[in-house]
Structure formats: C-alpha cells, structure tokens
C-alpha cells in the first residue's frame, strides 16, 4: 500500500514568532518551521497503515528552498522519501496555485492513498486537500477520524466527523483523505529514525519537472492580496480574585452580570 502525505512546513505556533513581512506574506525567518500539526496526524495514520498493509510513505511538499529541513523531521518519524517542489516563482502562492502544483506533482507518483491535514496552523484555510482531490478527480474523504482500507477490494472506509457523531464513507482507491487529530497521537522520531533520515532521499522538482512550466502559478497570479494587518486591540488588564470559594464565586458571577453575559 503506497501512501503519499502532503506535508506543509509552517512557522512553529509555539514559538510565538509568527508574523507577516512588509509585503503581507508570511515572514519565514521569524520563527522556526515545523511540520504542520494536522499533517503529523496524517503521517501517523500513514505509518500505521503501511505497518499493517506493507508499502511506503512518500512526502510531497511545496515549499521554499528550506523545505527539506522540515521534511527531514517527517522522514525521521518514518517516511520513506520526499518530493520537494520548489520554484522561485511560487513565492506568494495562493490556494489555487498550491492545489494546482500539488496536483501536478502527484501525477507522476504511484499511490493508493493521499493523506493531508484538514487545515494548517498558519493559514487555517482547510481548502487545499479538497481542491487537489477535485483537480485529480480522486474520491475525497475529509475530517477523517478512522481510516480502514480494504486492499483486496480496492476500497477504503473513512469515519468522517459530523456535527452529531460521524458518517462512514466508502470510496474506491486511489483516494485522498484529509486527516484530523482523532486518528491518534503522532509518534516521536527515534534516535535511529533521526539518523536514518539523514540519508533518505529528497527529490527536488522544479515546475518544469512536474509539467506545469509556464502555467499561471505563484505570487504574480495570486487571486487574493493582503491589504493590511493590525494587532487586535489589547485586552484589558486581568482582574485577579483570591479569597474563599464563596467570595470568589460571588465576585465572578457579579463580573458576568456587570458585563451583561448573564
């Protein structure tokens, strides 16, 4: 069972250093890049599936030249190899370009499943996986809490989280699945994994090598632009309440009433 995981390097949300540059684009120098949180769940799901059914896990990342640093972390967790799509012109790409490039990159790869994260901590759009699937006419199964392939039948069942519980979806493979944390805690890379990752293959591909040279992608054809940004108004000072539980509760409830919340 061959699985591709779409992995996006994002600024580490825990670093507190996320910010935009003067051009309104993400300032990638401001904080260390990590594997997007939801993509780690996709990776974990991929490892469990290949452990159960055999096969390999290939990463596909569209990122600037620094992409491989983050990809090594995913290789250390257990991925087999990586494909890094990079091109100067991709700076400032919007979702349309990103989906187009990822779809093009997947055309030359053999897979039974493509796994992605449901959304990213830097963009939070949660739209790229659906776009990639639609462009490739792959069955799309999103908000996955459980993935059960049946390789003999060539089908996959996915539990999709619904407002009231979950729906069980079924589709033929190959298919694209957007993954959530409900798939289970991602593993930490072992020391052995980290060592092994150093010699794992990361293939770098330019746009010409994925067949979309000359296609309108990247910052110059972005469909959206950032006009400006500002810090939200600062929160008022924190009121600290100590005292007996009864006193504290009275004060808390009075505060809520004063703010007309209750």
């Amino acid at each position: 069972m061959h699985i591709v995981v779409l992995v996006k390097p994002v600024p580490d949300p825990a670093s507190g250093g996320e910010r935009l540059g003067p051009d309104g684009r993400l300032d990638r120098t401001a904080s260390p890049a990590v594997v997007n949180g939801n993509d780690e769940y996709a990776l974990e799901a991929a490892f469990k599936l290949t452990e159960a059914h055999g096969g390999e896990v290939t990463l596909v990342t569209m990122a600037p030249a620094t992409g491989p640093e983050t990809m090594r972390k995913a290789l250390a967790m257990g991925a087999t190899r990586g494909i890094h799509v990079t091109d100067e012109s991709l700076a400032g790409s919007d979702h349309v370009s990103t989906a187009r490039v990822l779809a093009a990159a997947l055309k030359d790869v053999e897979f039974d499943l493509v796994l992605a994260g449901v959304d990213t901590s830097d963009g939070l759009a949660g739209v790229v996986p659906a776009s990639v699937a639609a462009r490739l006419k792959l069955p799309y199964l999103s908000y996955a809490a459980k993935i059960e392939p049946d390789p003999a039948a060539g089908t996959v069942k996915v539990r999709r989280i619904s407002p009231t519980g979950f729906d069980v979806l079924e589709a033929p493979m190959p298919a694209l699945i957007a993954c959530t944390q409900a798939l289970g805690e991602p593993r930490y890379p072992s020391l052995k994994g980290i060592m092994a990752a150093r010699s794992k293959e990361i293939v770098t591909k330019a746009l010409s090598e994925i067949g979309i040279d000359g296609a309108p992608v990247g910052g110059t054809v972005a469909t959206t632009k950032v006009l400006g940004s500002k810090a939200p108004p600062p929160r008022a000072a924190t009121l600290v309440v100590r005292g007996t539980p009864d006193e504290a509760a009275r004060e808390l409830v009075a505060f809520l009433a004063e703010r007309r919340i209750i």
């Binding site: 449901v118 776009s131 699937a133």
Partner: peptide, 24 residues
C-alpha cells in the same frame, strides 16, 4: 461557512472554477 462542509465546498468549487478563496 468556514466549517467542515463549507471548506470542502469552497475547495472543490475553487478547483472547478479557478476562483480564489479568502478563508475564515
């Protein structure tokens, strides 16, 4: 909407039309 269904619609619609998305 920017919930699961709305995002999925937006993603597919964007792929079918080439339209951009401003999210959230």
């Amino acid at each position: 909407g920017a919930g699961p269904d709305g995002r999925d619609v937006a993603g597919v619609l964007s792929a079918l039309t080439g339209w951009g998305i401003i999210a959230n």
